[in-house]
Design a protein around this nucleic acid. Structure first.
Lengths: 246, 246
DNA sequence: TCGGCGAAATTGTGATCACATTGACCGAGG
DNA sequence: CCTCGGTCAATGTGATCACAATTTCGCCGA
């Protein structure tokens, strides 16, 4: 069969395997995935500058692919380039957090409702497994495993239907509050965390769109209220941190 | 005064001058702005591949900054990299268009309402000027001027309050439907376009949040219905285009 | 006249180098 | 002890080169 290149984007074309691992593709793409994963699971925390050569060395690659990966992540809001052209994990404050939560409550229920009809038995089974793994992580107090599981749970829902707009938008949001959540959990521990995913699972089984949207909203809002009080202390701590470093 | 570099992002730090012109900053940043502007105003249309060296030559720079700019734009959804690693202006179809409109109707009213209290007299005056220029563009049938004005009008509202989440998200959406709108207007002409911004202006003057949100929603939905019928013919045309090129 | 094959040009990717700017470190002077 | 000054290392940026993969185009054969 002959075909002049591939035409304008033949539909599902962009890579976007949210799952880590997958050692194929361009180098800068692999670096991008590693960097993103590190941010979403909170392995990179605010307050420290991300250097090009440093990251390159720690990943065992040349600075070039790292440069592209950083540019990409910063375009999604996961990093910010200061006026000095230095790269930081953006600091969190009340307004930004509020905007993030608002955007999440607007977009994520919508994505879930759109995906609902496409959630088949296998996916539901996977959701159950993820939920179980989350419970285990909570029991063991494993923050990183909890965050990874939580991420997988939500996106296992949202990506049931192919989406080229809403899901990337939502990924951007997670990328932005990931590092912050980590530092919050680092203080509070996993004891205060509750598993709200059961309601979502029930709504999926019942094929109840409104209930699913409500469950997602509740999950988001709950995390928010838990954190809202500590946002001040975090900010204060960050302030002290930077003063100490000065 | 001594200060160890600048601390974690000292608040409003990211550059983000939406207005074009501004010849300062890194080269890749200038290229990025030019590329973005070309997409939002529809100067780059779907169906043609964007090549690194080509763009570099047409902008008079080396391929290097172009590479970073493209990576950045593609992270925002303005371009897609195919599996062949070629860069395309993403094709539009019914689902993607629906997602875009939905995301806009969710995010833009929210951004407008949040910005409303911060719209001062000068900004309102600027909004009037922009609205006038839009009327002129409509009379003269100048599609590009209309699109540029429309973009400025909306973001002149949204950016009244500093926003590091909602506004970038919305910019991403505009970047995605810009080229498509252009090809639609190219077929329909500006005759079918109506200026709905008056309602928004009235709502702003009255400081009526709900009316402003409704005006924004109406503006978005109206553009949608106008286009929805032609999306099929556009898709067909694109299909013919690619077949002809094959 | 049309379909397929092979060579040449073009593409994105990655590495390495040079450079201007900015950061941190350290010592002298108050 | 604190503050200001200069020096040196480290950073991001941009350019250029090499390479493999892909696309394009011209030629041959049916």
């Amino acid at each position: 069969m002959k075909r002049a290149a591939d035409q304008p984007p033949p539909l599902g074309d962009v890579v976007a395997p949210d799952d880590d691992a997958a050692v194929d593709g361009p180098l800068h793409d692999r670096v991008y995935r590693q960097l993103r994963h590190a941010l979403v699971t909170g392995r990179i925390v605010p307050g420290r500058a991300v250097t090009l050569r440093g990251l390159a060395q720690s990943l065992g690659v040349s600075p070039m692919p790292v440069r592209e990966a950083i540019r990409r992540v910063s375009a999604e809001g996961g990093l910010v380039v200061g006026t000095n052209r230095r790269v930081w994990v953006p600091a969190m404050d009340a307004e930004r957090y509020d905007e993030l939560i608002r955007a999440r409550t607007l977009l994520e229920p919508e994505a879930a409702v759109r995906a609902l009809p496409h959630i088949d038995r296998e996916r539901l089974e996977r959701l159950r497994d993820i939920d179980d793994s989350i419970d285990v992580a909570l029991e063991q107090g494993d923050v990183e495993a909890y965050m990874a599981g939580n991420h997988r749970f939500h996106f296992e829902i949202y990506t049931a239907a192919p989406s080229r707009v809403l899901v990337p938008l939502i990924e951007s949001l997670w990328l932005q509050f990931g590092p912050f959540m980590r530092s919050v959990y680092g203080r509070l521990g996993t004891a205060a965390l509750v598993d709200h995913h059961v309601n979502a699972l029930d709504a999926i089984i019942a094929r109840d769109a409104e209930a699913l949207a409500a469950a997602i909203r509740a999950d988001i809002m709950d995390g928010m209220e838990l954190i809202a009080s500590s946002i001040v202390s975090i900010a204060v701590a960050a302030e002290e941190e930077s003063r100490r470093r000065a």
